[in-house]
Simulated assay, not measured.
Amino acid sequence: MKQRMIVGISGATGIIYGIKLLKTLKELGIETHLVISKAAEMTLHYETDMTVKELRGLADITYPIQDVGAAIASGSFQAMGMIVAPCSVHTLSAIANSLSNQLLVRAADVTLKERRRLVLLLRETPFTIGHIKNMLAVTENGGIIAPPVPAFYTKPSSLDEMVEHTIGRVLDLFGIDTGKLHRWGEES
Results as ranks from 00 to 15, higher is better:
Val149Gln: 13
Pro156Phe: 05
Thr125Ser: 15
Ser98His: 12
Ser100Ile: 06
Val163Ser: 08
Leu118Arg: 02
Val138Ala: 03
Asn134Trp: 01
Pro148Arg: 01
Glu164Ser: 09
Ala137Cys: 07
Met135Gln: 06
Thr91Val: 12
Ala96Met: 03
Ala151Trp: 10
Gln102Asn: 14
Ala94Ser: 15
Ala108Leu: 11
Ile167Arg: 08
Asn134Phe: 02
Leu122Glu: 00
Pro147Ile: 01
Arg116Gln: 07
Thr154His: 09
Leu99Tyr: 09
Leu121Ala: 15
Gly130Trp: 09
Leu112Tyr: 04
Leu92Glu: 04
Asn97Lys: 05
Leu104Thr: 04
Tyr153Asp: 10
Thr111Asn: 12
Ile129Gly: 04
Glu114Leu: 15
Arg169Cys: 14
Glu114Phe: 12
Arg169Thr: 06
Ala107Gly: 07
Val89Ala: 09
Ser98Leu: 05
Val138Gly: 01
Met162Gly: 07
Ile95Trp: 01
Ala107Lys: 04
Asn101Thr: 11
Glu161Ser: 09
Ala107Met: 05
Glu124His: 11
Asn141Asp: 15
Leu104Ile: 10
Asp109Thr: 03
Lys113Ser: 15
Pro156Gln: 11
Val149Tyr: 12
Pro148Gly: 03
Arg123Pro: 02
Lys133Ser: 02
Pro126Asp: 09
Val119Asn: 04
Asn141Glu: 15
Ile129Asn: 07
Ser88Pro: 14
Ile144Val: 09
Pro126Phe: 07
Val163Trp: 02
Thr139Lys: 07
Ile95Pro: 01
Thr139Asp: 06
Met162Cys: 10
Gly168Lys: 01
Ser100His: 06
Gly142Ser: 06
Val138Asn: 00
Val149Asp: 13
Val105Leu: 03
Pro156Arg: 09
His131Ser: 09
Ser100Gly: 14
Leu120His: 00
Ala96Lys: 01
Leu99Pro: 07
Thr111Phe: 06
Arg123Ser: 05
Gly142Glu: 04
Ser157Ala: 10
Leu136Met: 08
Asn101Pro: 04
Tyr153Trp: 07
Arg169Ser: 05
Asp109His: 03
Leu118Thr: 02
Ile145Ser: 13
Thr139Asn: 05
Arg116Met: 04
Thr166Asp: 11
Arg106Trp: 01
Thr125Lys: 15
Gly143Arg: 00
Ile129Val: 07
Pro126Ser: 11
Ile144Thr: 12
Ser158Glu: 13
Ile132Leu: 13
Gly130Val: 14
Leu159Trp: 12
Lys113Gly: 13
Asn141Pro: 08
Ser158Thr: 14
Leu103Ala: 13
Gly130Asp: 14
Ala108Arg: 14
Ser98Asn: 12
His165Ala: 07
Val149Ser: 15
Gly168Arg: 02
Ala107Cys: 15
Leu120Gly: 00
Lys133Met: 03
Leu122Val: 01
Asp160Ile: 06
Glu114Gly: 14
Ala137Gln: 06
Thr154Ile: 11
Asn141Ala: 13
Arg117Trp: 08
Val138Ile: 10
Thr128His: 02
Ile144Phe: 05
His165Gln: 14
